[in-house]
Nucleic acid binder design. Structure first.
Length: 880
RNA sequence: GGGCAGGUGGCGAAAUUGGCAAACGCACUAGCCUUAGGAGCUAGCGCCGCAAGGCUUGUGGGUUCAACUCCCACCCUGCCCACCA
């Protein structure tokens, strides 16, 4: 533990002030330690998961335990969530607030590689450090129900989950072009490629064909979209998910290829101007291309050209793809909608994964337009803007016009003169009625690639068996085997895919010396013979293990299900738990899930949150759980920056929370972070700003210290050094504060809640305060500053713990004001303010206003022409 | 190129959703206290002006008795996504 210089930083017993008895700074280190120990010993935050009456599952996204230790960003997120949990707890809920570690994954592995330590050792070290730091935070964390994703007792169940998805037909293997990072030497998920570069190391990503495991998340696209309508999530997050799923309704046209028996299908989402189609493009790597050009004389040339395009793509990634390349295939389609014979071109910008990989093109798409111009392909615009001059430019093919909403159609006759946006639905009906096209829904969402050619993850629990293939192959009468799901091809030979038996889980990650990625496209596990060589669970013959591990996102896609069912270590229950056939206890799960509140970073708005929803839905469909949405409520917190910039080690602007825990205490750090701005928006950390909270707390401390306690009519009166006044008005402020703080905590507006508490406490220096009134402040402040409020609670002779007090209610009657300030405006400009009784009538108010000197001069002779009166608030006299 | 969020004092921000713009805090200024200091207390603090008063929520327009708030156009910043037809 770091030590600090008492002389310089924060003298606990302030020599200078002692003599004068003016201002005592509180010793946060001593106090926080005292309560930390006490709470831990008394298990103050423990809930009985089996019996809790009002279960409230409050979760924060668990951290990846980095070697750098807890980050202020972590602290911000956890405190924001913890305050919510404490608030819910004081409102009578049994709050379960667990904490764990997302310790598998490329982060840990890369760090270990750099340091030359083994990820296992490094992770253990990091977790130890994190746990220590987390315990200083003053959270409600239930450490008896913690998870660590890299522990066999956890990843055993991650593997179990894989097997369930496999059984349900949701896991399959296929060769796929994948994003490959030459530096990290691994496959990346689409999501990990930023601007054609690796998210982690920033090197150019290339494409590579590899056999990969996928999860069929696209089967759930519609449901993932649909449920967004009712879950209580922030609209921002929902929009991000909608965009990611990327549903677009379009049409598939089927067209015969001229002089051939072939038919091809084209997809378009913008088909309103279908009469403008003049050519067709096909993706250079489209599987149909070779068949299509079978009889074309320059077939070889076309294929090698296409090959070149694909290679260029791989080399350059998807970055500078502004240039268009293509080649004519020599073939035509007979356009079903009557545009005649349309030439088919191979085009660099056509991608085989989207739609059908073949598109009908027209003058009304930027890329089609540019491509056609380059190769001199005929264009025929049918969609025009209202503006005459612009229309001429479009007609002359000087300008590409793409407005499918506001443009006007010229053809066909049925739609001539119609706005494209209005015609859309009719066009759909028209082409379908004529049998020209089929409606098709296309999603941007792709299946989830979960294979990683890495070491630090859960081995995928699959075994490949040649012998089983020989026994069960189609020639021996068993048919309908699906490639990728039932069998795969390894080194040119078919092998049956045999899932590991559940009773044999976990497939332990072997301890190896060399965990570095091999760079061959295979996981480091592939070179561990004792791991690879195994026995087939079906035929008992020799077989090989899958050597890839699964994506870290799979670990975090189900952890919330595990927490409540984790049993304390070394107990009898642990042994019973190990007999569980599924990773959770059904009764406890029924009681606690789905989650009541989930708080985490917006950067996970799509990936983690979408995967989690998918896994939950799949588990429900398999009958393992009874709900299909994991989080009833989700709120995203913002980012904490330093001088406006994202904190990063390379910039050297990382704020280390430890330093501030020592200097100011956890309570001050907690409260300051929440004071910066609304939780959802984050904000900028300032070393100066934190002293405001520090002063606020020291004032409270000093106030309680110096207060003279005296019995008077059964009420303890606290008198500050300030003026003695009747403690009447402060009662109104108290109730107003209760109302404000309560509403702000409900809406996660912690910053304004703190401001309200400061205002309330500022009253204390002016007035006499009863113990009840002071206690109200302590209770309202306790979610923010759990240690300090507990200490003061005790110090003032209160019974029990401040944290076990019920959340105060406000009395609406106490809010009623006896005098209000009435704003008087003339022509909408404020000219005066008068104090009146809240019930003042319009007539009286006008009379009163006109009697004011400042108002009179605006109406020397005449009367106001018009009067607007907002009861108890405002009076506007209009002179015109 | 697309989506989302945002633009208010020197700074972080607030404004009951159309009704006193700048609450609360930081920084700053003056005074007090003093065992002289990274402490505390009192007061001040959007801009211009000695004042009366005038001006002020990215820019320009509009609606309204009244606009930070609603509508239209534009500019800027941040985040996320992008060969998605």
């Amino acid at each position: 533990m770091e030590r600090y210089d008492h002389q310089k930083i924060d003298p606990p017993s302030h020599k200078a002030t002692e003599g004068r008895g003016k201002m005592d700074r509180y010793n946060h280190q001593q106090i926080e330690k005292k309560w930390r120990t006490k709470w831990e010993r008394q298990k103050t935050w423990k809930v009985d998961l089996a019996k809790a009456k009002k279960p409230y599952y409050n979760l924060m996204m668990f951290p990846y335990p980095s070697a750098e230790g807890l980050h202020v960003g972590n602290v911000y997120a956890f405190v924001g969530s913890d305050i919510h949990g404490r608030f819910a707890r004081m409102r009578g809920n049994d709050v379960f607030e667990p904490m764990g570690f997302d310790s598998f994954g490329i982060h840990s592995e890369n760090f270990a590689i750099k340091q030359g330590t083994h990820p296992k050792e490094q992770t253990a070290k990091n977790i130890k450090n994190f746990t220590l730091q987390l315990k200083h935070l003053g959270g409600l964390f239930d450490w008896e129900h913690s998870v660590t994703t890299s522990e066999p007792e956890y990843y055993k169940w991650t593997q179990w989950l894989f097997l369930q998805l496999y059984k349900a037909g949701l896991a399959y293997k296929k060769e796929a072009p994948v994003e490959w990072c030459p530096s990290c030497k691994t496959v990346l998920a689409n999501e990990q490629v930023i601007d054609g570069k690796c998210e982690r190391c920033n090197s150019e990503v290339i494409q590579k064909e590899l056999e990969q495991w996928f999860f069929g998340i696209t089967k759930y696209a519609e449901r993932l979209l649909k449920n967004l309508e009712w879950i209580d999530w922030t609209e921002k997050t929902k929009i991000a998910q909608r965009n990611w799923i990327g549903k677009s309704e379009g049409l598939v046209f089927t067209a015969p290829v001229k002089n051939s028996k072939l038919h091809i299908q084209t997809f378009s989402a913008h088909f309103e101007a279908f009469q403008a189609d003049t050519f067709v493009v096909i993706a250079p790597d489209h599987p149909l291309l070779e068949t299509l050009i079978e009889d074309v004389p320059n077939k070889k040339e076309i294929l090698s050209f296409s090959q070149k395009i694909v290679e260029n793509r791989e080399k350059e990634g998807y970055v500078e793809e502004k240039k268009f390349e293509g080649i004519f295939t020599g073939r035509y389609i007979v356009d079903p909608v009557g545009n005649g014979d349309l030439p088919i071109w191979v085009a660099s910008y056509a991608i085989k994964e989207y739609g059908t990989g073949i598109v009908k093109c027209s003058a009304h798409d930027e890329r089609d337009f540019a491509f056609a111009k380059k190769y001199g392909i005929r264009l025929k615009p049918v969609l025009f803007p209202k503006d005459k001059e612009q229309k001429v430019r479009v007609e002359k093919l000087e300008e590409c016009y793409t407005d499918m909403l506001n443009g006007y159609l010229a053809e066909p006759n049925e739609f001539s003169g119609k706005r494209a946006g209005d015609a859309r639905q009719e066009v759909i009906k028209y082409v379908i009625r004529k049998g020209l096209a089929e409606p098709k829904t296309q999603y941007h969402l792709r299946d989830w690639l979960i294979s990683r050619q890495r070491y630090w993850g859960p081995p995928i629990p699959i075994i490949y068996c040649r012998k089983c293939w020989e026994i069960r192959n189609p020639k021996s009468g068993i048919r309908n085997l699906i490639v990728g799901h039932d069998y795969t091809i390894i080194e040119g030979k078919e092998h049956m895919i045999v899932p590991v038996k559940e009773k044999d889980l976990p497939v332990l990650l072997p301890d190896v010396e060399d965990f570095r990625p091999s760079g061959t496209g295979k996981s480091p596990l592939a070179s561990v013979a004792s791991f690879v060589e195994t026995t087939c669970p079906e035929c008992k013959g020799p077989a090989k293990r899958e050597t890839d591990v699964s994506d870290t996102f799979l670990d975090s896609a189900w952890y919330f299900l595990r927490y409540p069912s984790v049993e304390a270590k070394n107990s009898v229950l642990e042994i019973r738990n190990s007999k569980l056939e599924i990773p959770w206890n059904q009764q406890i799960t029924r009681r606690w899930l789905p989650l009541d509140m989930y708080i985490g970073g917006h950067e996970h708005a799509v990936l983690h949150l979408l995967y989690t929803r998918f896994i939950t839905m799949a588990l429900k469909d398999m009958g393992h759980i009874e709900f299909e949405e994991p989080f009833k409520k989700f709120r995203a917190h913002g980012l904490i920056t330093k001088e406006g910039a994202k904190m990063s080690k390379s910039k050297g602007n990382v704020v280390n929370p430890d330093e501030y825990f020592v200097k100011y205490g956890a309570d001050t750090v907690r409260t300051y972070l929440m004071f910066i701005g609304p939780l959802g928006e984050g904000g900028d950390w300032s070393d100066k700003g934190i002293v405001g909270i520090s002063r606020f707390f020291n004032r409270l401390w000093s106030f309680a210290e110096n207060a003279q306690l005296q019995k008077r009519a059964e009420t303890l009166l606290l008198r500050s050094s300030g003026v003695l006044a009747q403690g009447v008005e402060i009662e109104a402020v108290r109730h107003r504060t209760i109302k404000k703080v309560t509403e702000d905590l409900e809406g996660l507006r912690y910053n304004t809640a703190i401001a309200a508490l400061m205002e309330y406490s500022n009253e204390f220096s002016k007035k006499t305060v009863t113990l009840d009134q002071f206690n109200a402040l302590l209770i309202l402040l306790s979610p923010f500053a759990p240690h300090l409020t507990e200490e003061l609670w005790e110090k003032l002779g209160n019974e029990g713990s401040v944290h076990n007090q019920p959340w105060p209610e406000y009395d609406p009657k106490a809010l009623e004001e006896k005098v209000v300030r009435l704003v008087i405006q003339v022509n909408g400009k404020v000219r005066d303010v008068v104090e009146v009784s809240p019930g003042i009538k319009e007539k009286e108010a006008v009379a009163l206003a006109l009697a004011q000197e400042k108002i009179q001069k605006w109406f020397p002779t005449k009367k106001p022409k018009n009067v607007v009166f907002v009861k108890g608030r405002l009076l506007n006299l209009v002179s015109y």
